[in-house]
Design a protein around this nucleic acid. Sequence first.
DNA 1: CCCTGATTCGC
DNA 2: GCGAATCAGG
Length: 183
Amino acid sequence: MTEAVPSWTDERVELLRRLWDDGLSASQIALQIGGVSRNAVIGKVHRLGLAGRVKPLGQVAANGRRKGDEVEIEASETVVIVEEPTVPEPPAIVTHRPAPDFPLNALPSAAPQPVALAVSERVTIMDLRDSMCRWPMGDPTKPDFRFCGARSITGLPYCSQHAQIAYQPAAERKRDRRVAGMR
DNA sequence: CCCTGATTCGC
DNA sequence: GCGAATCAGG
């Protein structure tokens, strides 16, 4: 069965609103809601009339694209006063309870390693640069402890692989039907 | 190249 | 209504 995604149910729309309002990007929202592409998210956002959220300060940035249309110099500059002059959009992604932190995987086999990717990159805290996945690998008390180090999703501390593990969408657990290996 | 959101348009 | 493809930009 292809367990077709419910489409935009009230709950999903609600979640979408929340996340969008929290300033998450469409792709991030798509990952969390699950089953939808970022395009789908953007499309929905527009249809809901949520588009044009808080702009990155200053630039009201009109739409950049206008196909066969000529200039449209209407728009009375009713410049919006930014509500919060000092709000850099912190990590508001905590909708589903995040990340298991290192102390946990000290357990025999509770270590988060369902990801069998080619662990080509694994870095020590020293080499952990920005935009690198901070998923812990190994025992933090041992010298061989490393972080995933793969490219993290913008705005998140993890790469796409680990982000999906850390931030699992509120799955519809009607009867729980987790089939391993979708996609 | 990575990422953003915006728009169009066939379904 | 939906979202892939596309566009425009950072």
